[in-house]
C-alpha cells in the first residue's frame, strides 16, 4: 500500500492527561506534512509515537507498512528507517561534529564485525562518504572537527539535521526543528529538510508554531488541538479562520499571520 504512515483511531494518554484522541491519518510516501497547533496540542506525542518511542493506548498504527509494536520489540533497522530531529538537538557535547553525525549511521551497522568496529570508532568507507555528504548539505564541512559544545545554537541545529540525513531514513520526523532560529535561517533549514522529499521520496513530517512556514514547506497542513485533528488540507487551502480557530484562547504571540490570507 506504500503508506509512510497509516493511523486509525490511535489514541494516547499520559498519567494525568489525554494526549491524542482517536487520530486517523494516512500519509503517502514522499509527502511533506506540517503539524500545526498550540503547545500541548499533541504534536510532540504524535511525533514520538511515529518514532516508535511510544506505543498507542488504542487504535492501530502502521509506520512504513510495519505495525507499531511495543518499543522494546522494535528492530534496529525499523528505528533506523525513521529519522528524528529533536527540538533540543540531543547532541553529544564532547564529541566532534563529525562523530555526532556519524552516530546517525549506528543503526545501519550490519553483522558482528561492523558492529564491533563501530564500538571502536571505525566505520565503513561508505559511512564516511554519507557523513561527508550530510555535512556538505548542511554547510558544516568546515566545522567537522569542532566539538559540538563549541558551536552556536544554529550550528548545533544543523548538526542535528545532518545526523538525521546521515541516517538515510525513509521517514523524517522533526519536532519544531526551527523554533529557535530567525525567519531567514528557519526557512533555509526547512527547505533543506523538506528537499529530501522531492529528491528521494523521503516522507517528511515536521511540527511548527508558525503557520506561514508550515504552509510554505508542506504539501498538507494538519491542525492539531487538544489531541485531535481539527483540519487536514493542502497549505494553500488553509484559511485565516482555520488558524484562529486552532489558536483560539491561546496567547496572541502564537497566533501568527497566515500567508496569502
Amino acid at each position: 500500500m506504500n503508506h509512510a504512515v497509516a493511523l486509525s483511531g490511535v489514541s494516547h494518554a499520559f498519567a494525568d492527561s489525554i494526549a491524542l484522541r482517536s487520530i486517523d491519518l494516512t500519509v503517502s510516501e514522499g509527502v511533506r506534512i506540517a503539524l500545526l497547533g498550540p503547545s500541548g496540542a499533541g504534536k510532540s506525542t504524535l511525533l514520538a509515537l511515529l518514532d516508535r518511542r511510544l506505543s498507542p493506548k488504542g487504535g492501530q498504527a502502521y509506520i512504513l507498512d510495519k505495525p507499531l509494536v511495543q518499543k522494546e520489540k522494535t528492530s534496529r533497522s525499523d528505528h533506523a528507517d525513521v529519522g528524528f530531529i529533536f527540538q533540543e538537538f540531543a547532541l553529544l557535547d564532547r564529541l566532534s561534529v563529525y562523530q555526532n553525525v556519524m552516530n546517525g549511521r549506528l543503526g545501519r551497522t550490519k553483522g558482528w564485525s561492523s558492529h564491533w568496529l563501530s564500538l571502536r570508532g571505525r566505520f565503513d568507507a561508505q559511512d564516511h562518504l554519507i557523513v561527508a555528504r550530510a555535512l556538505a548539505d548542511t554547510g558544516l564541512s568546515d566545522l567537522a572537527h569542532r566539538r559540538a559544545d563549541q558551536l552556536s545554537g544554529g550550528q548545533r541545529q544543523r548538526v542535528a539535521i545532518a545526523r538525521c540525513l546521515a541516517q538515510e531514513p525513509r521517514l523524517i520526523l522533526a519536532d519544531e526543528p526551527v523554533s529557535n532560529l530567525d525567519p531567514t535561517r528557519a526557512a533555509d533549514l526547512l527547505a533543506l529538510i523538506t528537499s529530501r522529499a522531492t529528491q528521494d521520496k523521503t516522507t517528511v513530517i515536521f511540527s511548527s508554531h508558525q503557520p506561514d512556514l508550515a504552509q510554505r514547506f508542506s504539501d498538507r497542513v494538519i491542525g492539531l488541538r487538544d489531541g485531535a485533528i481539527l483540519f487536514d488540507r493542502p497549505g494553500s487551502q488553509v484559511t485565516a479562520s482555520d488558524v484562529s480557530q486552532l489558536y483560539d484562547g491561546f496567547p496572541p504571540e502564537t497566533n501568527l499571520r497566515v500567508v496569502g490570507a
Partner: peptide, 28 residues
C-alpha cells in the same frame, strides 16, 4: 537522557548507546 534517546531513535544497539551516548558523557 536526551542524547541517549536520540541514539536509540537512530537504531543504535545497547552497546552502541553505551559507547557513543553514555560513555562520552561519563568518561571525563
Amino acid at each position: 537522557s536526551g542524547p541517549v534517546t536520540a541514539l536509540q531513535s537512530v537504531g543504535a544497539s545497547r552497546a552502541q548507546q553505551l559507547r557513543w551516548g553514555i560513555w562520552p558523557q561519563m568518561a571525563p
